[in-house]
């Protein structure tokens, strides 16, 4: 049953990714097709997660592939919160191919089926859930930051077609990216605190170190934004750099296990 739900989700996410790419040509119909693809895919994946949750005792996404499945769902959920607004739909150009790729990897790694839970206890489950939610937030923040850089480049280059393909204003993208990153930082902090409760002496590894560096990077960017007005291109690049680290942390913490 669970495996059957993967395909509609994957097809819908793939359709959304193609529709958003078509939306670059400026027609509103593509945007509507895209957002409906996201909605249908999200419903199918939510059903998939529900089936996995009800069929397992405990946390069913403890494996690296399962974690990717949950991360994909969190990313799409984060996107849906803003993507329904037509002004932000084009964020889907960056988010939906990533979501589709994550789901394919999760499926290939067997993370979309029903497995017995690892039985590591609730603290680890909460820790993993919080970390994945934080990574999902950072993914969305990076997508917004990339959209900022794209829009800024068009404005700098005085692109004549700027008003034919309208993106959200630069200021809105800057503010949104910072807010999403702040949510991600709060989730990451909570995830680290929960993780520390079950940490034993001498257990610190590379993944943990990179996670702390990641936390410091986001915290520094947001503090500098608040204190000295770091914004615009610099903030956007910081968030993209942070996301690159996310791409390192995730494999280190899950793929290596």
């Amino acid at each position: 049953m669970a495996e059957l739900l993967v395909w509609p989700a994957l097809l819908a996410y793939g359709e959304a990714a193609f529709a958003y790419a078509g939306g670059l040509r400026g027609a509103g119909r593509y945007g509507r097709l895209g957002i409906w693809g996201v909605r249908i895919g999200w419903l199918a994946q939510t059903a998939l997660l529900a089936v996995q949750a009800t069929s397992s005792d405990g946390f069913p996404w403890g494996t690296w592939a399962g974690a990717l499945n949950l991360l994909c769902w969190l990313v799409v959920t984060g996107y849906l919160a803003w993507g329904s607004n037509p002004r932000y739909r084009l964020l889907g150009i960056g988010v939906m191919p990533v979501a589709a790729a994550l789901l394919v990897l999760a499926w290939m790694g067997g993370g979309t089926g029903v497995h017995n839970a690892n039985g590591a206890g609730w603290a680890l489950d909460v820790h993993v859930g919080l970390m994945l939610a934080a990574f999902a937030s950072f993914t969305v923040a990076a997508a917004v930051a990339l959209l900022y850089l794209f829009q800024e480049r068009r404005l700098k280059r005085r692109d004549a077609r700027l008003l034919r393909l309208r993106l959200p204003p630069l200021e809105a993208l800057d503010r949104l990216a910072a807010r999403v990153a702040l949510v991600g930082l709060a989730l990451l902090s909570a995830g680290i605190v929960v993780g520390l409760t079950r940490l034993e002496a001498g257990e610190i590894d590379v993944a943990m170190t990179v996670t702390v560096v990641l936390w410091a990077l986001y915290a520094a960017a947001l503090v500098l934004r608040r204190e000295i007005g770091l914004q615009g291109r610099r903030l956007a690049w910081s968030l993209v750099a942070g996301f690159t680290l996310v791409g390192v942390v995730l494999p280190l913490t899950h793929f290596a296990s």
Partner: peptide
């Protein structure tokens, strides 16, 4: 249902529309 009326048709209107691409309101 179309974007026929969305784009500016004069230089002053284009300048204002560009400002709205930079600033949030």
């Amino acid at each position: 249902e179309t974007a026929i009326g969305e784009s500016p048709a004069s230089v002053p209107a284009a300048a204002a529309a560009l400002a709205q691409q930079v600033f949030e309101g």
